[in-house]
Amino acid sequence: MMGRQGWGIPPSVAAELRAHFLQHPAIEVELPWGGPEPDRERRSFPLLVTTTFGNAIRANIFNDEVWKPALAKAGVIPVREKRQRWKASRKDGFHVLPGTPTPP
């Protein structure tokens, strides 16, 4: 099965993702947009991954506390030593995942 983004997804995975996204839809989160000035424009975006309070997750916290431990557990990257930083690797970052599947 090919997703609308042009990447292949096994039908069983697509069905599970579809069911999950229907049960847990994206949450609209208002985020600052543009430059660093404090009065910059704010826009709303639908996010699939948020904090328990429905806020955007800070990328560094997600990477260090969720993404990289999951990669290490799966054997993709080495487990870090206590009190050490994770080894940086853009090729293993969260953003290398394909786009979100769109339900039919």
Rank of each mutant, 00 (worst) to 15 (best):
M1Q: 03
G3T: 15
Q5T: 12
Q5E: 13
G6W: 13
W7D: 13
G8M: 06
I9T: 10
I9Q: 12
P10V: 07
P10A: 15
P11I: 08
P11G: 04
V13N: 06
R18F: 10
A19K: 12
L22D: 10
Q23R: 11
P25H: 06
A26V: 08
V29G: 07
V29C: 05
E30W: 04
E30T: 12
P32S: 05
G35Y: 05
P36N: 10
P36G: 09
P36W: 02
E37A: 13
E37N: 13
P38K: 15
D39T: 09
R40N: 13
E41I: 05
R42Y: 06
R42I: 02
R43Y: 04
S44A: 13
P46K: 02
P46M: 01
L47E: 04
L47W: 04
V49Q: 01
T50C: 13
T50G: 05
F53S: 14
F53Q: 15
F53H: 12
N55I: 00
N55S: 10
N55L: 04
A56Q: 14
A56H: 10
A56T: 05
N60H: 14
N63Y: 05
N63T: 12
D64K: 14
E65Y: 02
V66M: 07
A70N: 03
L71F: 06
L71K: 03
A72W: 05
A72M: 05
K73S: 08
A74R: 05
A74G: 03
G75I: 02
I77Y: 01
I77E: 00
I77N: 00
P78K: 06
P78I: 08
P78R: 07
V79T: 10
R80M: 03
K82C: 01
R83N: 13
Q84D: 04
R85Y: 04
R85I: 01
R85Q: 11
R85C: 04
S89E: 09
S89P: 01
K91E: 14
D92T: 14
G93I: 01
G93H: 12
P101G: 04
P103M: 09
